[in-house]
Design a protein around this nucleic acid. Structure first.
Lengths: 293, 293
DNA sequence: GTTCCGCATGAATCGATAG
DNA sequence: ACTATCGATTCATGCGGAA
């Protein structure tokens, strides 16, 4: 029986990251404060200063990540003065100069995006999940996020919200059936780089900015049990909580005491390694699903 | 009865665009040759030279677009040496320097791209649809692309009866048409910036790079009938064919004679304007029938 | 114990108003 | 002129109480 650690740190990640060892983290999954949100914290980052603010942090992250580890960054640019601001794409360019490889960009499609109507745009219902690596070879456990083939059709259908079905009858039509027919005989299917997840609106205990399924998917994909997961902007601890549930060691850094305490509520510093047969059953093929149970 | 024109031009858009008038186009919708694809054409653009190659063209596009028009660019970066190449995001930055506003980025989720993988990545199942404008004010006909609302089946009747009493009487005065508009508003919601479309083209004859639904959606959204649509990389003519079907004038430029001739097959230079009065009648019918369900 | 349904709420954005 | 604050707008989701 092994021990799984969760190291929750209160403080500014610009300082606390320095205390972490070189090449010690397998996966960094984080959602930094977007420009102009969380205004009190970190001095309320202005869009024009965002890249400058973030680069020292990514430099530290580059240092602590293992050579075969992965950094997944959840981010989206704000609208400023009627335009999408360019701080995200500038950040990508600057991070590459730091030595990061921009391996891939996943899309998180937020099925329940914020409502509203404006004369010049629709509701923003997607965010970027930028994958960065230190090397071209990195650990990727693709089979862990495969969907069991027997389930594939059912899952894909079940994952469609009622709205999707109403809006696009072809999704439940014969075309879909034909596609499924192509996969009869195969056991599993690989996912793609678009994740369909709803934002969590109603989790009273800890209101997170992303649903647990999001870190879960990337933790499955880029780590194995007992690996180390880091979230330098922990918030209420979603990433670390999921990591612990999945038997991964984790480090979370949070600057705000309120959030830090929230995270402490249900994340224990040292816990037993659960046999995971149970989790496997529960989570099998859960990519892209809503959390409805 | 008006005439709708489709002006198909054989040649290099770098030259042919010069022949178009300033401020004459309402919508530019195009999918340029991606880096390294269609290698013969345009000298086979290398990823590293892509921005440099494209910028003179976007400069001309900026010239020919009306002040309240829109440019929608369908593009996706290739994987080069294990990384997503940066030519697309560099292009955005450079186009802004030319004077373009980067208003929005839509995602085209290619919903039927079947599962697959490479050692380091999954199947790429989305592309960017970058929206650029000349001004912060531009034409946008949002009502034209509304979609059925989620669980409207449950809420509809209740909402209808309540609303009739609550709604302030002054607005009801405008009569039947107004009431229809309100009713429609209850059934339909505005879409968001993620488009779920299949890759397959309905028309087997043309192997287009995008389905007809894609230009159709943006033509509905950004133009009205008799407006002018331009595709400087016409290919087999999907954009122009859809424009013609929707009673929009169009200009298509294509450098390869084979594609040019394909486009000519079913796009006629001058065609009649089809009347669409039918739509109004259909809506009236809906008002009665939906109520009874 | 199910199913149904009311209702609060969320990484939003614009335009007007105020300092 | 430029920045900060605020109200209005809008809809998918899931919790929790009711039937």
């Amino acid at each position: 029986m092994e021990k799984i650690k969760a190291n929750l740190i209160l403080g500014d990640c610009r300082e606390k990251l320095r205390e972490l060892s070189d090449n010690s983290i397998d996966l960094i999954f984080t959602s930094p404060p977007y420009a102009d949100s969380r205004a009190e914290t970190y001095g309320g980052i202005r869009p024009d200063k965002y890249v400058e603010w973030f680069l020292p942090i990514t430099r530290e992250l580059l240092r602590v990540l293992k050579p075969d580890g992965t950094f997944v960054l959840n981010i989206k640019e704000k609208v400023v003065n009627g335009e999408r601001h360019t701080y995200v794409i500038e950040l990508i360019l600057e991070m590459r100069r730091q030595g990061w490889l921009w391996t891939e960009e996943y899309i998180w499609h937020k099925k329940n995006s914020y409502p509203g109507k404006w004369p010049n745009r629709f509701r923003d219902s997607w965010e970027r999940l930028l994958q960065f690596n230190k090397n071209r070879k990195f650990n990727m456990y693709q089979d862990e996020v495969m969907v069991p083939m027997g389930d594939w059709a059912d899952r894909r259908l079940k994952n469609l919200s009622e709205t999707d079905k109403v809006r696009d009858p072809s999704k439940v039509g014969s075309g879909f059936g034909k596609r499924i027919a192509n996969w009869i005989g195969r056991e599993k299917a690989y996912p793609n780089n678009v994740l369909h997840l709803a934002t969590e609106t109603k989790n009273k205990n800890h209101s997170a900015v992303f649903p647990e399924d999001l870190p879960e998917w990337f933790i499955k994909l880029f780590t194995k049990e007992c690996d180390w997961v880091l979230d330098p902007f922990m918030g209420s601890g979603t990433t670390c909580r999921v990591a612990q549930r999945m038997n991964r060691n984790s480090i979370g850094i949070e600057i705000l005491p309120e959030y830090y305490q929230l995270a402490q509520v249900d994340i224990v510093p040292v816990s037993e390694f659960h046999s995971v047969q149970l989790t496997l059953l529960e989570n099998k093929g859960d990519y892209g699903s809503t959390k409805s149970k």
